[in-house]
């Protein structure tokens, strides 16, 4: 017997499989390791920030700063590698420390001042992109032998598909996110917080500490996503990834996590990310949509996925819906 709490996750996976099947019927080449490898590589940065976003949303919060933090990360790495002799690994460590501290600071503001996360992280978004501009307004290419090695690391799959390093990092991020959210005390606190701060207090968890840790984790993931994005593009650009936070939120929701917090699965988000990637790939394969129809199609497909998910859940739990 399947646990009813897993229904949203199963619905997400089912919809992804159905969608892929539809794509396959129309464009048989979609079912190649090449396209599958691309799906992982192209969405690696998105998947990583979505892991952080899932944890934030599970706690009932939201983090709008991630897109700007990715842009800042790319610029920071590029400028540091250009202007100082530091080794990339050291730069990565510095960056992760910075973005984690940045996230923690936002978490502290949210808890300490009782301000809504939406607004604090919105200010964080302005700040992160603003600092990126101050570092450089131009795009900066990254040129470092160690960096190049990381960029060109991949495993060849049968059928010429490439499983890249950054794709693997994303999958690992999901494993780590899963363990953190579903197997640790911190994760239990996150769920408790999402269920309502009152409950969390009753359960004896320290709300303040947990809030700081949640946004620190999201900052860490955004920093890691920034490293992966820098590896993906090989450059830093202050105008990069505008609006990525909204895409990440959408993937989390498609993945079956409730925006009100307290219910969801980290692995659901993985399928949310892959579904988003599938929509993009399908539109490129089709290749006939104009700029405007592309936007309309993305919105309509998103709506279709969400409505389908709701319908599947209602079918799966007739009694629960009657009660609710």
């Amino acid at each position: 017997m399947i646990n009813p709490r897993r229904y949203p996750l199963l619905a997400t996976i089912a919809i992804f499989v159905i969608a892929y099947a539809i794509c396959y019927v129309q464009f048989p080449y979609m079912l190649s390791t090449r396209v599958a490898g691309n799906l992982l590589t192209d969405n690696a940065y998105l998947g990583i920030v979505a892991v952080g976003m899932t944890v934030v949303i599970l706690s009932g919060g939201i983090d709008l700063s991630v897109g700007a933090v990715i842009a800042f990360s790319g610029v920071f790495i590029a400028v540091m590698l250009r202007d100082t002799g530091l080794h990339p690994v050291l730069v990565f460590a510095l960056l992760l420390a910075l973005t984690t501290a940045f996230g923690a600071a936002m978490g502290a503001l949210i808890h300490r001042l009782g301000m809504p996360p939406f607004i604090v992280t919105l200010a964080g978004m302005f700040l992160a992109r603003g600092v990126a501009y101050m570092l450089t307004i131009d795009s900066v290419a990254i040129d470092h032998p160690f960096f190049d090695t990381l960029q060109s690391t991949y495993w060849l799959m049968p059928g010429k598909g490439r499983l890249t390093l950054i794709g693997v990092i994303m999958l690992l991020a999901f494993v780590v996110g899963h363990v953190v959210a579903h197997r640790t005390r911190f994760g239990a606190n996150v769920f408790a917080l999402g269920g309502g701060q009152q409950t969390a207090r009753l359960m004896g968890s320290r709300v303040g500490r947990t809030t700081v840790m949640i946004y620190a984790f999201s900052g860490l993931m955004a920093g890691l996503g920034g490293i992966v994005f820098a590896l993906y593009t090989g450059s830093g650009y202050p105008l990069a990834t505008v609006g990525t936070e909204l895409t990440a939120i959408a993937t989390v929701v498609i993945g079956g996590t409730l925006l009100s917090g307290g219910a969801g699965y980290v692995f659901g988000t993985l399928f949310g990310v892959l579904t988003m990637g599938l929509i993009q790939t399908y539109i490129v394969f089709d290749g006939t949509l104009s700029s405007w129809w592309t936007k309309i199609a993305i919105g309509v497909l998103l709506l279709a996925f969400i409505v389908l998910q709701k319908a599947l859940l209602r079918l799966g739990t007739p009694r629960a819906s009657a009660l609710g």
């Binding site: 090449r34 691309n38 609006g243 290749g287 104009s290």
Partner: peptide, 24 residues
């Protein structure tokens, strides 16, 4: 036969589109 892809101002979409073109 022109295959058109709109990247909506994002480099990552352009890279993904290029990869899809190559795959096709």
């Amino acid at each position: 036969d022109l295959k058109f892809s709109d990247a909506q101002q994002r480099q990552e979409n352009q890279i993904a589109a290029l990869r899809s073109f190559i795959a096709q």
